[in-house]
Write a protein that binds this DNA or RNA. Structure first.
Length: 208
DNA sequence: CACATGATCGCCT
DNA sequence: GGCGATCATGTGG
């Protein structure tokens, strides 16, 4: 049996103490851009040996499916790797790139639409932020791998997404997506969202 | 600060 | 056979 990588111990959290409640299915069934914005300030969490580990999401990108040249599902591409993108909103889509990094996405909308939100950075306790600033680093710190691809977040007992009750709306900045220069005009679409007040954003943003 | 490069391999062509 | 939804490190200004 393959051992799953543990999350960073410093990310341990108590959902009750933080005033967190799990996101319902309906959260994921709105437009992808709305979900990408709504995920700023939410907590991605993973259970490991009975305890929760997680961090507050501060940077996301929307990928808009068949019509988006930057999306893995561009043109309706449907392969075993991409298959989870076609599942119901609330499913995880994790892929492996550059021979060494995993990246985690949250699928949005109804099954068959293949849209998703890439989680690019999160904020942890002091000193851990640098570990979470970037999609590959975020996955590594959380211990998330392609073995988690296809998992359902809703009611998930291993990986879950929590919203903060009574949260103030974060101030959100917008810019083009990172690392998709090959995608023609889609590379300029304003689909990256980040918390303007977080020091943990993966790259200091130009756009304000 | 702005590039430039290497590492490393699964996936698609 | 080529390249990528990345990252760390190195160079030069």
């Amino acid at each position: 049996m393959i051992a799953k990588p543990p999350p960073d111990r410093r990310l341990q959290l108590d959902p009750d103490e933080l005033g967190l409640s799990e996101a319902a299915r309906s959260f994921y069934l709105r437009g992808t851009v709305a979900v990408a914005r709504g995920l700023i300030g939410a907590y991605l969490a993973r259970r490991w040996r009975g305890r929760w580990y997680g961090a507050r999401i501060v940077e996301t990108e929307a990928y808009l499916g068949a019509g988006d040249a930057a999306a893995h599902s561009f043109g309706g591409r449907r392969t075993p790797r991409v298959e989870p993108m076609y599942a119901e909103g609330g499913t995880l889509y994790v892929f492996f790139v550059y021979g060494m990094h995993s990246c985690v996405n949250v699928v949005t909308g109804r099954a068959g639409h293949a849209e998703a939100v890439l989680l690019r950075a999160a904020e942890g306790p002091d000193g851990v932020a640098r570990l979470l600033a970037g999609p590959g680093k975020l996955c590594a710190a959380m211990g998330i791998t392609v073995a988690d691809s296809g998992r359902d977040l809703v009611g998930g007992r291993e990986v879950a997404l929590f919203l903060r009750r009574r949260a103030r709306r974060p101030r959100i900045g917008v810019s083009p997506r990172i690392g998709v220069d090959y995608a023609g005009e889609a590379s300029a679409w304003p689909l990256r969202f980040f918390d303007l007040d977080s020091p943990a954003v993966s790259r200091r943003s130009s756009a304000r």
